[in-house]
């Protein structure tokens, strides 16, 4: 019965607690990463408020709102997966996990459409692309878009990471013991919710600012 993944633990219950705790510590670390970048944005916004507000109007609120809804739904399906795992209904758990990652992919597809549109409109100050912007204070609008691309792509990277981890978890599903399955779902779930929460902050800050 005492099958644990790590040799250090003598029973799975302690190991599960340790996994969850580790995930919280990791999330604390991640929160500092996003916190630092949010802080940069905040400072810049204090300095260049009007320019940022004007630039923010060029983002597509419709797509952003749609994506927010997608992520909220994915958090829900992730919670459902956790519930099924607690009741040891493994097939249902896998389906809920698949739904979660599908919603994650959906988010990424919409996000890349949004990027495509912004690049086509010349609002991406990347790789020396020409920056075309009709509006007051284009210098700081460019700064806004720099931050926008940095922040959203960092978030997207985290989402890709989450999808990959869910994929890996499903690939290893057969070899994992029930206890392992449960604590993996729990740990990945925590991470997934965290990435969603980051977006919940990003959406209003980037899209709805002074609108």
């Amino acid at each position: 019965m005492s099958r644990t993944e790590s040799v250090a633990f003598d029973n799975p219950r302690r190991e599960r607690r340790a996994d969850t705790f580790a995930m919280w510590v990791f999330i604390g670390s991640e929160a500092m990463l996003f916190g630092a970048i949010f802080l940069v944005f905040l400072v810049a916004h204090l300095d260049f408020g009007p320019a940022f507000a004007a630039a923010s109007k060029h983002l597509s609120v419709a797509l952003g709102a749609f994506n927010t809804a997608v992520l909220i739904t994915s958090s829900f399906t992730m919670a459902v997966a956790h519930m099924f795992a607690l009741h040891r209904r493994w097939r249902a758990t896998v389906w809920a996990l698949l739904a979660t990652s599908a919603l994650g992919v959906c988010f990424l597809v919409v996000k890349s459409m949004e990027y495509g549109k912004e690049i086509a409109e010349g609002m991406a100050p990347l790789l020396g692309l020409p920056f075309r912007y009709e509006g007051p204070d284009p210098v700081h609008a460019e700064f806004f878009f720099s931050l926008y691309f940095t922040m959203t792509s960092l978030h997207a990277l985290h989402l890709i990471g989450g999808i990959a981890v869910i994929g890996g978890m499903i690939a290893l599903w057969r070899t994992a013991s029930p206890a392992n399955r449960l604590h993996r779902v729990e740990a990945v779930g925590l991470y997934w919710h965290f990435v969603d929460v980051v977006w919940m902050f990003m959406f209003p800050v980037l899209y709805l600012i002074n609108r």
Binding site: A51, P136, D137, V139
Partner: peptide, 18 residues
């Protein structure tokens, strides 16, 4: 960056010398 803070009552017509 003349368009950053525009004095009240004036048009934002000044070009940037950046």
């Amino acid at each position: 960056i003349p368009k950053k803070e525009i004095a009240a009552g004036y048009e934002p017509v000044m070009p940037s010398f950046d």
